[in-house]
Write a protein that binds this DNA or RNA. Structure first.
Length: 552
RNA sequence: GGGCCCGUAGCUCAGCUGGACAGAGCAACGGACUUCUAAUCCGUAGGUCGCAGGUUCGAAUCCUGCCGGGCCCA
């Protein structure tokens, strides 16, 4: 809607001030924080000051005269040395209420998914243990971002990359095998750098119960380890899938790293790069000229002993994505991988993709606090709070919301005590309560007035005269714009404050005004507004993966 | 030695493609339940935006340097 308003303003102004076209790109349409500054504000007078060689305030006054003629602009004011503040007429908002009511939890969504085709890869945890909090944060950010991109009309594929090749998996097999042997021989040595978590023992016990004969009959220890590795990997991957599902996260593609090697994809990618003249050999190794694309040094793809580097596998993986024809791809990574970004970016650019084809969103650490103290997490010792444990303790909605509240690129302190509190200290309940309250009013309307707000009805919206009603209408009208902005800029954390603000207005409205009033027309108008708020809340909840509860 | 993130109210953080007196939540303090759920609402108080320069009509926001916290790489 901002776009339409901007265009309308530009059209009107350009009739009298041609210079506006020169600065049209810089013209901003803002929604001022304070009401006295109008519903929308523009900076265009400042921009015209230079080309017109006049004071911005003079220009602003001139523009004000032009804009005042527009019917939907109830009032136009000049303030703060040249800001132009526009007050929209009340009736202008009505159409958006109707749209919201009709579209429910998909209010403002772009239904045609033809604006682009993208891939978002996130979580991608090694299948060597349970998901931890960092993965959880990545899962929330990734899935919410995917929802946002989908909202604005992109075809989105959600992908999980399974690191099921290499040393980590071998070590996993070795660890499980050792625990397996220890059941009968407690002194059997456990690998120095093995995985020490309790879950390893559980897997070993399961193997002992069902596959004991088979493993014991294997003469070659490596064969047994490989068997254990495969079993453990599948076991853990199933757990991961289950945890993610319960966390409201689904993937379209589960991509196996191992499959790259099995199908010769690595060589294929290297050959492609070789055909572009970007591969050379030195000291018995095969190198990629990543420096040509901004990396600080060239990188080895095949080591002198003939094995591939991890980087080569990653290149093959991204070459596969490249061939799938995405407009761009987003990788959600832990912040500890930031040093890896330049070389991968260089590699994909070597394929011939544009600069921002590969985008990476970094997820900073999550620190867990309980009783005011930090709970240290360590994978080595096997002592760490898993995502599953947190989910069981505080619930999906709380975890998702909390993980979304802060910019993913900053450290997050997660206070378990706060998350468990069912009070005003906990913002999740606050927003959910707003939805529950609306549902409660609807139930009462049915009971007391025998009026079902779920049915289609067309009230007289001109009866919504209160200030708070106007504020709410405005919030609803601009909601799709704001979501669009958030999606484009890839800032899912902003959804929480947006939701909080809307919930806050609803609570305010609820407290100060009665909806179920004797004046039937007024009642219907207010219920209609509530219905539009409900749609807005549901839309936001759906994007964030949070449940719209019916009663609390 | 190089790189990334962060430093804004007592606490946790928004704001950072420059704009109107620096915002929110929690905590603190004072009020509001014969009412559609008070898991709510209203109000008060609280800040040299780490420090110092620079660019600009205008800087929390951009640039440079420094200080402090976390992380990665060599």
């Amino acid at each position: 809607m901002k776009k339409e308003i901007k265009q309308r303003i530009l059209d009107l102004v350009s009739k009298e001030i041609k210079e506006i076209n020169e600065v049209a790109d810089k013209v901003k349409i803002d929604i001022p924080k304070e009401e006295k500054f109008g519903d929308i504000a523009t900076n265009l007078a400042f921009l015209l000051a230079k080309p017109l060689k006049k004071k911005s305030i003079e220009i602003a006054n001139r523009v004000r005269e032009i804009l005042e003629k527009e019917e939907d602009f109830e009032k136009v004011e000049v303030a703060g040395g040249g800001f132009i503040n526009i007050f929209l007429s009340r009736s202008f908002y009505w159409q958006f209420l109707t749209k919201a009511v009709e579209e429910d939890s998909r209010y403002g969504e772009e239904r045609e998914k033809n604006k682009g085709y993208i891939n978002i890869e996130f979580v991608s945890a090694n299948p060597t243990g349970p998901l931890h909090l960092g993965h959880g944060r990545g899962a929330v950010v990734g899935s919410t971002l995917a929802n946002l991109k989908d909202y604005i009309g992109l075809k989105v594929e959600r992908e999980f990359y399974i690191n099921d090749a290499g040393r980590q998996i071998y070590l996993l097999g070795k660890s499980v095998y050792a625990r397996f042997r220890q059941i009968e021989e407690p002194d059997y040595p456990f690998p120095e750098d093995g995985y020490r978590g309790e879950y390893i023992k559980e897997i070993a016990e399961e193997l002992y119960q069902y596959e004991r004969e088979k493993i014991m009959s294997m003469l070659d220890e490596d064969e047994a380890i490989e068997f254990c590795a495969e079993y453990a990997k599948n076991y853990l991957l199933d757990e991961v899938k289950k945890d993610l599902k319960d966390f409201g996260v689904e993937f379209d593609i589960w991509f196996s790293e191992k499959s790259l090697y099995e199908h010769g994809k690595v060589d294929e990618a290297i050959e492609f790069l070789r055909s572009k003249g970007l591969i050379y050999e030195k000291e018995g190794a095969v190198w990629l000229k990543t420096t040509e694309f901004g990396d600080d040094k060239d990188r080895v793809l095949i080591k002198s002993d003939g094995t591939y580097t991890y980087f080569a596998g990653d290149i093959a993986y991204h070459y596969d994505k490249f061939k799938r024809g995405y407009d761009y791809i987003i990788n959600v990574w832990g912040a500890d991988h930031h040093g890896y970004f330049p070389r991968l970016k260089a590699a994909v650019m070597a394929f011939g993709v544009p600069e921002n084809w590969l985008r990476v969103i970094f997820i900073q650490m999550v620190k867990l606090f309980k009783n005011g103290k930090e709970i240290k997490m360590s994978k080595r010792s096997g002592e760490f709070i898993t995502l599953r444990e947190l989910l069981d303790e505080v619930g999906k909605d709380v975890v998702r919301y909390m993980f979304l509240t802060k910019d993913s690129d900053t450290h997050l302190n997660f206070d378990i005590d706060l998350a468990l509190k069912q009070s005003n200290e906990n913002p999740v309940y606050y927003v959910q309560y707003a939805h529950a309250r609306i549902m409660s009013v609807f139930r009462e309307a049915k009971k007391r007035f025998n009026f079902d707000p779920e049915q289609d009805f067309s009230p007289d919206l001109s009866l919504l005269k209160e200030d708070i009603e106007r504020q709410i209408m405005k919030e609803i009208a601009f909601l799709p714009d704001t979501i669009y902005d958030i999606a484009e800029k890839e800032q899912p954390h902003k959804l929480t404050s947006l939701t909080y603000n809307l919930a806050s207005k609803l609570h305010n409205y609820y407290y100060h005004y009665k909806f179920l009033v004797d004046d039937e027309n007024l009642m219907k108008a207010r219920l209609y507004l509530l219905k539009a708020v409900r749609s807005s809340l549901r839309t936001l909840f759906r994007l964030m993966g949070i449940t719209p509860v019916e009663r609390m």
